[in-house]
Design a protein around this nucleic acid. Structure first.
Lengths: 215, 215
DNA sequence: GTCTATACCCGGATAGAC
DNA sequence: GTCTATCCGGGTATAGAC
């Protein structure tokens, strides 16, 4: 992205971004403290301002960093494979991401809830075309008789909502299930459950092949 | 809640709570401005402090007000009816609530994302037992052969996630669909879609009875 | 490029008149 | 009970030494 990103400068840059993601995700833009970010990064506060001129700039950078990561993950996920396998893989990837990097999802969610003031162009320029493209793939499956009629966009929303829930509402999920933390076993169970309900809901598989009770 | 809530005092009380819900939902606890809340309520700032001694107290009150409303809605929703109708009704009620009062959901979501620091007892004392009770009802349906084996708790999470998505991620949904606002037609379509996928996913109906393309 | 010390402002809270 | 004027802490941002 930068022209000469080979300098040692880049090292701190990354540390600050990561610290910022953590702080912004748990406190929001206004609740976050530059001091706290500096502490997490192991730097004096003024140093942070040296790299990022102000709070909003840093916030935007942290947000963009998350969006880039997500794009790498889901950019060219599946071209025009078979629906069952493609949707299953997509759901499992999203569930894993939610459990492994909940902060990214929380940061994004907070921004959207507040009306996406710093992300509106990204929604328009990146996410909207992305959804359009994927929706067309799904539609082509429907048209060619590979899956029953369903609204592709609402289907994508449903997958997003269900998977991100485990990242964004982590505190609620853990409290209600009486757990301290997530573990690998739960990733598997949520993946199985979510994939199964949605694929069966779309008529791609028969309901209830291997559901298990969890709580 | 108050002992003598008959005084004119109650009028402002309500106005402030409502104003607070709006402000906190769109800005978060830290981003919200007492001045802005006062303006929305049409009162001088000091007046707000007369009724609520500080910002956190007001925030908690706004949050509790939302929780009470939700409890009224979903407290005794369904005893031990038949699964198909009960789940369908529950989903449709939640969708409608999401579209009609997105602020309540946003306020709640922001609080949970940040770790539920002001809601932990409510999660423990109210929501956890609520889920436990509903999960038992679902389990009894499974045990009596009225529906196939599924994890009741994950099912509840899925319904919450999918429905609340339209409230919390309103900005994203509208942008991606290229819409300006929600309307009655969309409430219907989302209700139909969500109910259908989930009921079919649980094996309670056949997939795709009346889906329609929306975008 | 790094860090300490500080200026400045914003906003929550209150004192005190009406 | 209502409102104006003000105080004061906390937090962003920067000046300037190293």
């Amino acid at each position: 992205m930068a022209k000469n990103a080979t300098k040692p400068r880049t090292k701190n840059y990354g540390k600050i971004i990561k610290a910022a993601q953590e702080e912004f995700a748990s406190k929001g833009l206004n609740g976050a403290r530059m001091q706290a970010i500096a502490d997490r990064a192991g730097l004096p506060k003024a140093n942070v301002h040296y790299y990022f001129k102000d709070k909003v700039t840093l916030y935007t950078a942290a947000l963009n960093s998350v969006m880039e990561t997500w794009n790498v993950f889901f950019g060219s996920s599946a071209e025009a494979q078979e629906p069952k396998k493609t949707l299953d893989q997509f759901i499992r990837n999203k569930v894993r991401l939610a459990f492994e990097d909940p902060l990214a999802s929380k940061l994004f969610a907070t921004e959207i809830i507040q009306g996406a003031p710093h992300l509106s162009e990204h929604l328009e320029k990146v996410m909207r075309p992305w959804v359009k493209e994927k929706a067309q793939i799904i539609q082509s499956w429907i048209d060619s008789g590979k899956m029953p009629q369903t609204d592709p966009v609402l289907l994508i929303f449903m997958i997003w909502a269900t998977t991100q829930h485990y990242a964004d509402f982590q505190a609620q999920v853990l409290r209600i299930m009486g757990r301290e933390d997530y573990d690998e076993e739960m990733v598997r169970q949520v993946s199985d459950f979510t994939s199964e309900i949605i694929l069966a809901g779309c008529g791609l598989i028969q309901p209830n092949l291997n559901s298990r009770k969890i709580s």
